[in-house]
Each structure stands twice: as structure tokens, then as C-alpha cells.
Design a protein around this nucleic acid. Sequence first.
DNA 1: ATGAAAGCGCTAACAT
DNA 2: ATGTTAGCGCTTTCAT
Lengths: 343, 343
Amino acid sequence: MKKPSSVVTMADVARSAGVSTMTVSNVINGRPRVGAETRERVLAAITELGYQINLAARHLRAGRTGVVGLAVPELERPYFAQLAARLADRFERHGLRIVVERTKASRQGELDAVAFSRLRMYDGLILSVVDLDPAELAQVGTESPVVVIGERVTPSRFDHVMMDNVDGARQATAHLLATGSRRIALLGGTPGTEATSMPTLRAQGWAEAHAAAGVPTDSRLVVPSSFRLEDGYEDVKSLLERGIGFDGVFALTDVVAIGALRALADAGLSVPGDVQVVGFDDVDESRYLVPSLTSVNPGHDAMADAIVDLLLRQMGDAQPTEPHEHVVPARLVARETTRPLQA
Amino acid sequence: MKKPSSVVTMADVARSAGVSTMTVSNVINGRPRVGAETRERVLAAITELGYQINLAARHLRAGRTGVVGLAVPELERPYFAQLAARLADRFERHGLRIVVERTKASRQGELDAVAFSRLRMYDGLILSVVDLDPAELAQVGTESPVVVIGERVTPSRFDHVMMDNVDGARQATAHLLATGSRRIALLGGTPGTEATSMPTLRAQGWAEAHAAAGVPTDSRLVVPSSFRLEDGYEDVKSLLERGIGFDGVFALTDVVAIGALRALADAGLSVPGDVQVVGFDDVDESRYLVPSLTSVNPGHDAMADAIVDLLLRQMGDAQPTEPHEHVVPARLVARETTRPLQA
DNA sequence: ATGAAAGCGCTAACAT
DNA sequence: ATGTTAGCGCTTTCAT
């Protein structure tokens, strides 16, 4: 019983079993042409020595890893965590592992992810682009399969799956207007950002709905912030403290909405009586909140399906096909933070 | 401008620049002893050919990947998503990437994670063990650094960081008792499970607190379930439908508590007036809920610190040290789903 | 059914 | 400052 002192290689096993490394390799990979008795001997040696295959070597040889990477801005955002779970389910059915990493929504983080992937650690990459600019992304040379998700309009070089941010935001705002809100705060709007960023697109939907309804917007109701719970909380608190009146809230994400709800409660405002609230993402917890959160469902399953389909296609095909641009429709889910529509 | 037809290797670059591969390697890795003019030439060739380093080869050679794996039961559980984020912050400071994968809380998934790691795709692995049994885990031969987290008492072969489940649950239950609850439902208790599983440990704390207070428990108040929102919801609904009275709820996780709160609201029960509720995990959203959720904080930062410390130690040390067992203390955070303690 | 040789793309060690 | 040699551990030929 030899203790595996440091690293046991195939050669060690081969020597111990009195065969060639090739035969060991054949046994390990379940290839057919190995005698039953030889196989036994090899297996015994493997157990005895505690042999473990070296994937790095295998990958170098095979040129593939069986791993798909998912790079998201932040691991703890429910939207991405839930997307990751959906993707994991789907890829698993195709015998692929999925691993999740984060980019911190930074240019560098996003570039790193592509680099890591194209450097052959992943057979394919799903990249949520936030900060990387289309031009930069376009320059990234990559032969390896990449599907870009996220809100920005990206260069046509890559397959791209996105939700319909503008229309979703339009629906959310239109619903608030239809149910009686007239001054709708936009939480998370980040003015001065790229024209194709998620906040800008959702702000655009907010503006369009106002225009369509002939209701004026007030720029003081646009509160810039990040996407954390405390941001929604602080945004509302700040509006109240500054005495900027509002009777509706469109939060750029459900997480922000949850923070906002808390601030409204602290201020003694009732929801939806005094203020109506709509979020975006329709994360799992939204329907369990009290009151349950009206939100925009960005088409989770359709999105996951499209991503998997496009990536597998790239991974399978010999010749690259034309890049696809896939927009998944969004749909408002009305719940208790908004009043019922008049019939 | 040659199009990178398939794979450009260092050798290609070397040829094109009229140097040896070694010089190319030196340039790429920023090693000092390269002439300025040569460096220029090499860099030019790299750009021109669109050369990209092959990490698989690098790793085979270097024997390390710079990647730490984190294997958790489910990607979308807030507790794990938030843990992942904390760990990512810390490892990043040490120049390590962290990637997250899921095990589905299954034996096989957990074994796969160890296999993947020890097969040298990760320099270290943080494994949340749920289903794998200590004996099985012990048999997994691995030279590669592993830190086990999770509730089960694991074999002493591995460094292990865990929260104080029993004491946390005891605090939660004691608080409910101290604030007047007498019939406390236990949501998520899974009877007949391993003696060291998380549900069992937390159930034990629940029982201990009752014993200490001289209050009898009622086994009908123990509702088995998984850890999703809908489980908490269904658990409460089921208790109510079956007419099993209760005036307190200890949910095994905050997520379950959120589901429970919704079911209580649906039944027209007030919290904390009619029923007090305590969760476990103190996830970020708990303090923003309305009413905010009283919960057990399992010591998030202390836990992350301990994990990182132990793993880095293993990754650094030549000789393996004695395995460490680290228990992080838990602490109740009283909020609005429970009544104030009588002064 | 099994083995020998070659080499995946890189880098550490040792020349020059 | 740059090149040569050797080899990481595996698998793909192509023998036998």
C-alpha cells in the first residue's frame, strides 16, 4: 500500500501493472480494446496507487475542457444567481459543467473573463457585459464560443441575447400611470452613462411611457444609484428628505424596490395607497413579499433557452455562422404594490 | 495582417519575430532580461498574429492555475451567493480568481467537485458538504488544498469551518420563548436525516431551548421541507389547514421565513402580534423586509476570513499541517418579526 | 489486444 | 541578453 507521496502519473500505474501508459489510458477512458484481465490489473494498480488523472494534461491534449463559464457583474445579485441556476440545469443536460465568476461590472473583469475563456479554460463563455465597450469587445480576438448577454448593444461579432429593457420599463411605467400615479420616481437611473447601458434603456422606457400618456416627467425624480438594497432605501429617503413629492416608484431592479419599500414603510407611507411601486427582474422573492411586488418579468426561461442554444451551436459548428441578436420580450406581472386597473 | 486562422502558438510568434520561444515567453511574462528592441519586435509579432497564450499548457507546466473553486449546493440560495461574494473579495486581494459551481446538494455533485479540484483545475477548493458522508469524503484521496464548510461534522482529514448551528438555533428559539411564544413551529426540520445534518443540528437547538425553558415541544410542529420560498409558504399553510395551532415560527433559513411570512399574511395573521417569526442566515434582505426579519447571524465575515486563511495556508505550506476545525459563533439579531424583550 | 513514438504549448534550468 | 534542451502528463497515430 504505497502512499501517494506527491503525484502518481499514468506512467506509474503502467509500470505497476506491467503495461504501457496507452493501455492505462484506454482503461480509464473506457475504450473497448482492452483485455478483461488486463483491465482488472490496471484498475487494481490505480486503486492501489491512488492514481488521479491530470485534467490539465488531458485538456492540453484534447483541446477541450467540458466547462462553460458564466461571467456576471456580481455573484450575489439575485437576478444573476437565478440565471446561473437556470443555465446550470440546462447545460448539465448536455454533459457540461458550468462555473460562475464575477467581473465586478468592470472593464478589466470582463476582459479577464474573455481572456480566461479564449485561453482555453472554458469551451464556451457567457459574458454579461456592463462596462466593456462594444468597440473594445470587438477587438478581443477570440475563436472560442462566446454569447454576450446584458443590456448594451454589442458589436455584431458575437451572439447576443438581451431582454427588452425599453419595453419592459415602458410597461412598468405605463401600468403605474394607468393605475393613477402621476409623479413617478425612477430609482437607479444613472444619468450621463453610455447610451446603451441598462439604466439608460430603462430610463428611456420610463420616459416613453410618460410621453405616450401625455404626463410630464420631472428630472428631480430620477435618482442615480447602484443596484443594492441600501441604494433603494437611500434613494427614497433622499427624495422624502428633499421634499420632492412622488406617488409612484419605478425601481430599476427588484432589489432596489425592496430597499425602497422599506424606506416607504419607515416614512409611514402605505403601498400601494400612498405610493405605488414597480420593480424589474421578477426575482423569485418578489411574489412572496408583503405586499408582493409588481415587477417586470424579463423572460427568464426564454433567455436561458436562447443562451444555451446559441452557445451550443457555436461549440458544435465547424464554421462560424452569422452572429445572432436575440431579444426576449418582457412582460409586466401586476401584484400588490400597485392598485388594480379599473376595469 | 494575417488572420489567426486557427491557433497561433508561441513558436509561431518566435518564428515571426526571429527569436526563440523562450524569449517570447519572457516577454509575455514580463521577465526582466529581454532587450528593449527585441521586446518591441516580439510584441509586434504577437499583435500581428493575434497570439493568445494557452493556459492549459501553462498550467500543465506550472502545476497551478491561480483559480480557487467554491462548490455550493445551489447557486441561487442567497446565503451561498453572498458567501461567494465575500470570498471573491478576499481571494482577489491575493491575486486568485474564484469560480463557483454547484453540487445540487448531491453526493455525486460533491464528489465531482473534489475530483475536478484534485485533478488540478483548481489550486484550492472550498466545498460545502451536504450529502456526502464523512466516511466517503475521507476516502477521497486528495493532495490538493480543500476546506470543507457546511454543517456536517466531517472527518478530521480536512480543514473545516462551520457555523454554530445548534447554538444559533437555540438563541433563536430562546428569544421566541422569552418574548412570549409557547408553541413554536420548526420549518424545514427534516426528521430521519443524518445526525449531523444542518436541519438536525438546528432542530437540536430548538429542542434544547425548549428544555431549558421547561416548555414542551410538539412533534406536529416540526414541518419537514426543503429550503425554498415556496416551502416556507406551504409549510405554514399546511399547519394552518391542519388546525395545528402555533404562536411562533423558527424557520431554518431566512428564505423559508420569507415564504412563511407571506403565508401568515394570506391567513390574516399579524406578525409579530399573532405569530412571531425568526429566520436563520441573516441574509442581506432580512433587514429590509417589512416587517424586518429577526434572524440568526452566522458570522459571515468571520467565516469568510477563516476559510480564506485556512485555504491559503494549505496552498502555501509545503507540509500539510494538522487539520483545523473552526466553529464561528452565531448571534441573534432581533428585528421586527419578534416582540421586544421585556426590560 | 497492446505498445512505441511523437507531440499538444508552454517554461525551468542551464548554456552561450 | 538570448538560445537549447528537456519534459510537464496525457492521447493520437501507427505499428505489432
